[in-house]
């Protein structure tokens, strides 16, 4: 939107006023009632994973997420997409919201890129992997083991897909 702040309904009288000093309470100049203002968030870079992208850089994003807002708030947008399709195929997709490529700085073809979370129509949630992540993320030592196995020991994304049981998605 390019505005410096927005008023948010509710919130007044909660501890957000104490915990978030950048939130400001003002009298609404129109109604005179108390209203909380929050400053705009302007990320330098945002990373999005799209269900599909086309060869023009247009994205098909999950309807349940607010990725279109995030992209339009960010200076640089790096998108990954599970599939790259033609612009005609992207227009025909039955599910998802489209984001124009004009908002996208860079696009990466990353099949399986949502793993261990789900990518609608492609693969489901990997519950066993998320449980393993939660177990190993409990301490710095065990999290090093996780990173070693799933990041440092792997040569490329194809190797990760093999570890994740998604080798069939590899390009």
């Amino acid at each position: 939107m390019g505005v410096p702040f927005l008023p948010v309904p509710g919130h007044v009288g909660s501890d957000y006023e104490r915990l978030r000093p950048e939130f400001r309470l003002i009298a609404d100049p129109y109604s005179g009632k108390d209203v909380l203002l929050v400053p705009a968030i302007a990320p330098d870079v945002s990373f999005l994973h799209a269900l599909q992208a086309d060869t023009e850089g247009n994205l098909l994003l999950d309807e349940k997420e607010d990725d279109c807002l995030l992209a339009q708030a960010s200076r640089v947008v790096v998108a990954s997409a599970d599939e790259i399709v033609t612009p005609e195929a992207l227009r025909r997709a039955p599910y998802g919201v489209r984001l124009s490529g004009i908002h996208v700085t860079a696009l990466v073809h990353a099949p399986g890129g949502a793993h261990p979370t789900a990518c609608r129509g492609r693969y489901g949630l990997d519950e066993a992997h998320i449980r393993e992540y939660l177990r190993l993320a409990a301490s710095d030592d065990s999290f090093r083991d996780y990173l070693q196995r799933y990041v440092f020991d792997l040569t490329d994304h194809g190797a990760y897909l093999g570890e994740a049981g998604l080798a069939a998605l590899a390009p």
């Binding site: 007044v12 009288g13 909660s14 501890d15 009632k33 108390d34």
Partner: peptide
């Protein structure tokens, strides 16, 4: 310990 949402609010707060 922290108030995310108060049960009631003063009259100046639209609710």
């Amino acid at each position: 310990d922290c108030v995310t949402s108060p049960g009631s609010s003063p009259p100046r707060v639209p609710r």
